[in-house]
């Protein structure tokens, strides 16, 4: 397989937050915008939002401002997409969650292990004679660092991390105001 090493210069990690109606097929349409422009999605999280019937997508990708702007407009063009916005890291609070399944005998035999977990502000959420599960909420690189540290102790059995979730620092869900404004404009137009 040929892996293309992309030129990462001039590229920024953008977080795109999309709100859409909860209608089958919307995820497809949103990811198709990236595929068409040959942009790799770094992470993707989809879940219900605070508004009934509205789904929220948090998507990260490396690209340029020019492109991310076009990507967002093309997503908003989809009938069932309500709003899409892009942010750089300073404009958001963001977290990921990770779980590390570690082998109990190895974990217990090394006194370093619990220190590593504590230093990383991670929690042990399950313990039994064969394995323990360490849970960590944090930034991307913290999660990677903890994985490296545990791996050096030769105790990691499984590792999984979520996509990024984020809220913007600027205001609460703008989508509320937007929907209210849309309905008001419609009523006034009548």
């Amino acid at each position: 397989m040929l892996i293309q090493i992309e030129d990462m210069e001039n590229k920024t990690l953008y977080t795109i937050i999309v709100h859409s109606e909860n209608i089958a097929g919307t995820l497809n349409q949103i990811t198709a915008v990236f595929t068409r422009r040959q942009i790799n999605i770094e992470s993707l999280n989809v879940s219900a939002s605070s508004i009934k019937g509205v789904h929220k997508y948090t998507i990260t990708c490396w690209t340029t401002e020019d492109i991310v702007e076009k990507v967002v407009k093309q997503m908003e063009k989809k009938i069932d997409v309500i709003q899409a916005h892009y942010f750089t890291d300073p404009e958001i609070f963001q977290r990921e969650v990770a779980m590390y399944k570690v082998s109990m005998p190895e974990f217990q035999s090394n006194p370093e292990a619990s220190k590593v977990v504590r230093r990383a502000s991670a929690h042990i959420v399950e313990v039994n004679p064969t394995f323990a599960i360490v849970e960590k909420v944090g930034m991307s690189d913290e999660i990677t660092a903890l994985y490296q540290n545990l791996k050096e102790l030769n105790c990691v059995l499984q590792f999984v991390r979520s996509g990024r979730i984020a809220v913007s620092t600027s205001c609460f869900e703008r989508v509320n105001e937007y929907l209210a404004h849309r309905e008001e404009r419609y009523r006034n137009g009548k």
Partner: peptide, 11 residues
């Protein structure tokens, strides 16, 4: 004649 997620005549 209204879909809240779709604006046929933007402001």
């Amino acid at each position: 004649d209204f879909i809240r997620s779709y604006d046929p005549d933007p402001e």
